[in-house]
Design a protein around this nucleic acid. Structure first.
Lengths: 237, 237
DNA sequence: CGTCTGCTTGATAATACTCAATTACCGTGG
DNA sequence: CCACGGTAATTGAGTATTATCAAGCAGACG
């Protein structure tokens, strides 16, 4: 699969699904070839842990396919999901000694991994890459801060409605002709609770209420149909 | 105050209190002079608003002196403080159209401001600066995510204890000989509540409880003495 | 010295949590 | 294909924590 013996291989990055959306987007042929030389692909199964909270930060990666979660645990063992990572997103902590969060695949996933030290060196030598990484990190910080507002100042209904709208935006598939959006959740109820800072029971009750109000439909555990987006938006605050 | 007419002025950055801690730390004489040319100093009074949530992001800045808050409001008007900004910290949203949060000085402050577009251009032309900015943004993201754990999974006592310990680390002055730390708060009770995602009454009650337990002392509204750090740490979880 | 604002304290209500029981779903093996 | 078992999700009852509303207090400042 690798052509790393060839000094300037026609890299497989060309065939990469996220070639034009990930941080490598602005790199030229030569740079891509070099980056290709220090990276490798890796498959993860749903539930597989890639990194542990507090561990040495040995690797970083681009997500090619699948969804992963970043999470941390409070002293009394409660989990808080700090972020979800989707295809074309960057993963890991460059220029850092330890990973401040654990990383686990929520679905089967493909990632393109680099030794952190290799990546750090490459980044420092290629400002265009570092710039992309900066822009991404700044956006991620904005997104994270928006989530702080949710965690600190929203009630359960607002949290759940906001969550559904965000998931729909990320993963939603619009049914032909209709205004309805179906979301195939990569998260269990417990994981939704861990995203929102709630308990599983509260999430369940809120979903039931929203179904009762006709705002959503729950055809199966992992599927949610958004029937009335306007209603959800007004509930989200 | 400015020497911007002189092509390569002996910049006043040399006398800057945060010259070696801010993102400008790694720049050489020539670069500093250029940066000095596009920046200007500005004084802010306590309570003064520098940017508004959602406004066009016209400026960025380095904080020289004082403390500022970043905050956002939920639909029903509740405020959530997203971050506190201290001397040597960077402020604002480079490479972004709008500011995702409001910025207000909590104390009188000195900042070194740049037009965002000027700064963006300078940053793109000077990878060393951009690298510093990236490292800072990554740390800020780590710090913000740690705060998510507090907002999502801690109870009122844990939040208040964590807050006090963090403030002591940032602003604490150790009394000679004793183990006690005194913190001069830049925040009102309401603002503490807005940091922690609580109400002012809950914050007040927790502080009273901690005083009753001998963990802290409250000599005045804006001063808190940490008497028993170990106790606070165990309460913080 | 009085007023104003910010903080504290108290009483009550609402929200979300905990614990417990039941139901639904999904994969497995017969 | 259906029955079974195990896990995940829902529902219910009761409790705890925090928010809300209201009153009182105190320190800052004119």
């Amino acid at each position: 699969m690798h052509d790393t013996q060839n000094p300037l291989p026609k890299s497989y990055c060309d065939a990469c699904a996220i070639r034009n959306r990930a941080i490598c987007a602005d790199l030229d042929e030569r740079e891509i070839a070099l980056l290709n030389g220090i990276g490798r692909r890796r498959k993860l199964s749903a539930g597989e842990q890639l990194m542990w909270e507090g561990d040495e930060a040995v690797l970083v990666a681009n997500v090619i396919e699948g969804v992963l979660k970043l999470s941390s645990h409070s002293a009394d063992g409660k989990e808080q999901i700090l972020g979800l990572v989707y295809p074309s997103d960057f993963l890991g902590r460059p220029f850092g000694k330890t990973s401040p969060y654990g990383v686990e695949a929520l679905t089967d996933a493909h990632i393109c991994v680099f030794e952190r030290t290799d990546f750090d060196r490459f980044a420092r030598e290629h400002p265009r890459l570092e710039h992309k990484l900066l822009e991404r990190t700044l956006s991620e910080l904005d997104r994270t801060r928006r989530w702080m507002l949710l965690l600190g100042r929203m009630n359960a209904e607002q949290k759940v409605a906001s969550f559904l709208l965000e998931m729909a935006e990320r993963l939603g598939t619009n049914q032909a002709s209709g205004p309805e959006t179906t979301v195939s959740l990569p998260l269990s109820r417990q994981q939704i609770a861990d995203v929102l800072g709630l308990t599983i029971e509260t999430v369940s009750r809120q979903l039931t209420r929203l179904r009762g109000a006709g705002a959503i439909d729950l055809p199966s555990r992992r599927e949610i149909v958004l029937r009335d987006t306007a209603d959800l938006e007004s509930r989200a605050g």
